[in-house]
Design a protein around this nucleic acid. Sequence first.
DNA 1: AAACTTTACAACCGCGGCCGT
DNA 2: TACGGCCGCGGTTGTAAAGTT
Length: 199
Amino acid sequence: MRKPCCEKRKTKKGAWSKQEDEKLTQYVEKNGEGIWRSLPLAAGLLRCGKSCRLRWVNYLRPNVKRGNFGEDEEDLIIRLHALLGNRWSLIAGRLPGRTDNEVKNYWNTHLRRKLIQMGVDPNNHRIGHTHNIGLTKSSFGSRQVNYPSEPVDSQGDKYSDQIKPLSDSTSGLESNTSCSGLPDLNLDITIGPPSSFGY
DNA sequence: AAACTTTACAACCGCGGCCGT
DNA sequence: TACGGCCGCGGTTGTAAAGTT
């Protein structure tokens, strides 16, 4: 059994102070990301490396977008969740400036509830407990969200402009057949204006 | 105004996978 | 091939803020 990474040293837990944020930011800006395990000592922080990484990635990183999610982002998250399930890092990777933690939190606090209110099971994106595949929920707020009507093939072209196949392996969707039974999705999704979603 | 409840989100924890030895 | 260390991920918890009674 692996020991917790922070067992060796006395480490601080809980909310980060301004001073800690500044130390971490200065260190990462000077030395770059990586080697999280040794970073706290080098930066003069009484935190474990994982904690530093989380704080940097989710909060301090310069291009992190904070604040409310737009409607286009909401739609994209819902559609991606229907395709990918709880693979938050992959979903977040398609949302510039958003982190997996933020997407996960937003899903759990807002979108899950929204889908439930709409009568959609947030786990499988089906209406109620029927086994419909290929549902089209006619309203999401004032707009429409189309769920995938069937598993995508490797070309991924069922999702028109928003979801296109990637040519390289950096999509994070690495295998042809995922262990969860999902098809090879190989998505290349960008956020466009809501009107371009084709609803 | 106070007490209580709900919501939102930052942070922690444990596990699995990858990589070097 | 086996082992150990590290990183990243997803689930869960803690708590401050907002809302309600």
